[in-house]
Design a protein around this nucleic acid. Structure first.
Lengths: 98, 98
DNA sequence: TGGCTATTTGGTAAAATAGCCAATATGAAG
DNA sequence: CTTCATATTGGCTATTTTACCAAATAGCCA
């Protein structure tokens, strides 16, 4: 059984895990500009729509995005906008490292 | 073959992935206070030293930590300190959600 | 209602990750 | 040089993740 002090980081880890896939990061960066439906994201990404849907589900479960229905489309929205700051932080570091 | 625009997020994704494990987050939060050797981290975590060493290797490869030798210990240091800001951002959100 | 569009869910195979033990390195100290 | 302490690497298995296809679901509209 894992120590409680370690387990206390599980929720935070889940959020980082949701951001740990290139496709999901791409989605986050698109959503920072505007709300987008699954179909449009799928067209941009080029994966099967079921794959994209599952990525979106991961982001939603982690609390990073949420969704609403509009006619027969599901529109996703970036809920945790501070992930953009994380991105900036990382890329600032990456450029500084050159 | 994945689209280039998606692949361009791979490096950023790697950093988030490195932070996506409770044990590694624990390590990061300890390292923000002071530099620590593998043996001390291992004692705090309770996993096999080889497991801890591999976690540290992930953090190092991602550019989040680095290490120096001191006598026969390897001392790890938090290199990308802005991951602390990410943590704050996430936990601020989490508390706001209650 | 029935068909249409958009999305999610289930199933599955391949790949990646985690964690343990054993084996190997690497420097320290006698 | 030998032994000790510290850390890393290799090998293995169990678990998780990813991505596809097929099937099911949900709302819209004739």
């Amino acid at each position: 059984m894992k120590k409680a002090i370690i387990l206390s980081y599980s929720k935070e880890a889940e959020i980082f895990k949701a951001l740990s896939h290139p496709t999901r990061l791409f989605i986050v960066h698109k959503l920072k500009e505007k709300d987008i439906c699954v179909c449009e994201l799928t067209a941009m990404i080029g994966d099967d729509i079921s794959t994209v849907s599952k990525h979106l589900s991961v982001l939603k479960t982690a609390g990073i995005a949420d969704s609403t229905r509009k006619k027969n489309q599901i529109i996703y929205r970036l809920k945790m906008r501070c992930v953009i700051d994380m991105s900036l932080c990382i890329n600032r570091k990456r450029k500084a490292a050159l």
